[in-house]
Amino acid sequence: MTATTSAARAEVPAPSPASVRRGGAGSGRGRLELYRWAFVVPALVYVALFFAFPVVKNAVMGFQDYTTASFYTGEAPFIGLENYRTIFANPGFWPSVAHTALFTAGSIVGQFSIGLAMALFFRRRFPLGGVLRSLLLLPWLLPVIVSTALWRSLMDQDSGALNAFLKAVGVIDTGIPWLSSPSIALTSVIIVNIWVGIPFNVALLYGGLQDIPEELYEAASIDGAGPVRSFLAITWPLLRPTVNVVVLLCVIYTLRSVDIILGLTRGGPAGSTQTLPTSSYFQSFQDFQFGLGRRRATCSSSSPSSSRCCTCGRPDAP
């Protein structure tokens, strides 16, 4: 592509006399059009192949009976709305919609409020503040599969460190079944996702706070504004652009998040943490019902869930 561009650039400024003589004004404009398209086409082709094609293919697969055999034979009969009927009739569908909503809302509220509080805290200068702030990024650096394995052992009902700590402090008498009770598991998954998402929020919000001029706060304090007043009148309005970006990105990341749930609970126990992306994943790669899987993927408006997943289970039999 670099070659095409530089070749074209070299020739466009100096149209050869021959071409002008041969073509005349009309076809000269036509050629200009052609040049324009020549620049656009590579990008168009790229977008069509790598963005439009998967999206359209994804939508079309939702109407097909797509099985493992389809990959080899290329045959996937169209079955109209059958996949849609199957999905909506599935007793697990609406709960998974509700879980997706709860998971997303809970994660965003938690990540954002804790992230903002921490960013405000680290804005004040104090010894080792910089070091602490960098340490805070650690959860972000860990591969999700590592952090979920870590949390799985922390949250173990019988021998997990979390229950041991709570018992030692005297908050609880018997271990909380963090990940093994259907009524608590979703909360636990949200807690872990909040933990994973805080560094991202802190990093961006801290950056946004750095852009607010110090003089504004000085002026406000001269006018007698307290911390609350200056937060509401200065920090929040000036941080809004950053907030918008952070929340938007977090919503996208959380909506399509598969790996955290796969790593922690695989959607269980008893489907209590199944979301649209995870059920799409299972439908495709566990039950081989790719058409159904795609339909769910379309529902959650995400691309077919990434197939990265290291905890996928098959018995560890030989």
Binding site: E11, S16, P42, L49
Partner: peptide, 26 residues
């Protein structure tokens, strides 16, 4: 004449690029 050659070379390049992309995604 030079321009005709130049254009066809550009088209050839574009075609090559498209084919390469298509081959990658085959």
């Amino acid at each position: 004449m030079a321009d005709v050659l130049g254009r066809s070379r550009r088209i050839a390049l574009a075609v090559t690029a498209v084919t390469a992309v298509a081959a990658l995604s085959a």
